[in-house]
């Protein structure tokens, strides 16, 4: 099932006004400078913030409609959300975190093996590395059988090597998933590596010129080279 989104919200420094959609099995990467409203969009999508106006339709299900006063709470949207920072429950070990809302605990074992954290099941979140915590957060989100996966800069606090490794793991995982994935990043290289579709967000609006500017600013960069190698990419707006 695909998701169609349109939001308007007055933020402190700019007005957010955005519309986009994401088909099943697709990964839309929301790219843009920090503070441009990307996290707010994802939070509104999850039901954690309320837009001023707008509509969110997942398949035939309306999650939010300002005109019809519909606002399905986050509990009932059944989505997976991996936050920017580590939000595992500190009083639970990694396995208890991942099975917190799991549909089938056996699947958590498989996910732990897939993400190579099977040996850390009994450890508390503060006893493992940042990369391992985020791997567990992804397992926790997937174990709920989400209908859509939201990843809000999940690797931003990690070092470059761990980040690259996780990026590759995520790309492998993406091929196995049948639901839409929305990924937020301000890292253009990451966006180009992961995205099926790109959504450049600058000050709450789609700005395709920004992405072009960033790529052409320094044509010798790895980013520009990757962009040239990735003709499959489309801009989603």
């Amino acid at each position: 099932m695909s998701i169609n989104v349109s939001f308007k919200k007055d933020l402190k420094y700019f007005d957010l006004d955005i519309s986009f959609s994401c088909a099943k099995k697709n990964m839309v990467v929301m790219i843009g400078p920090s503070g441009g409203g990307k996290t707010t969009i994802v939070r509104m999508l999850a039901g954690l913030e309320k837009p001023k106006e707008g509509k969110v339709v997942f398949g035939n299900e309306v999650w939010f409609d300002s005109l019809r006063h519909i606002n399905v709470p986050p509990q009932k949207r059944r989505l997976g959300y991996v936050f920017q920072d580590y939000t595992l429950f500190p009083h639970l070990n990694l396995y208890e975190n991942a099975t917190f809302a799991a549909v089938d605990k056996k699947e958590v074992d498989e996910l732990f093996e897939l993400f190579r954290i099977g040996h850390l099941k009994k450890r508390k979140p503060d006893m493992v590395s940042g990369g391992e915590r985020q791997r567990c957060a992804i397992c926790q989100a997937l174990a709920r059988h989400p209908r859509i996966l939201l990843l809000d800069e999940p690797f931003s606090a990690l070092d470059a090597i761990t980040r690259r490794g996780l990026r590759e793991e995520l790309k492998t995982l993406k091929g196995k998933m049948s639901f839409p994935i929305i990924y937020v990043t301000h890292d253009i290289a990451e966006a180009l590596y992961l995205a099926d579709e790109l959504l450049p967000v600058v000050e709450g609006k789609i700005d395709d010129q920004w992405l072009q500017r960033m790529i052409t600013r320094d044509p010798s960069t790895e980013v520009a080279l990757r962009a040239a190698r990735e003709p499959r990419l489309t801009l989603v707006y």
């Binding site: 954690l48 986050p74 509990q75 949207r77 059944r78 989505l79 939000t87 429950f89 500190p90 917190f100």
Partner: peptide
């Protein structure tokens, strides 16, 4: 308590 823990719980379906 970090509010994000509560939000995480809500997103995971907890009332």
């Amino acid at each position: 308590l970090d509010r994000r823990l509560l939000e995480s719980a809500y997103v995971l379906g907890l009332s």
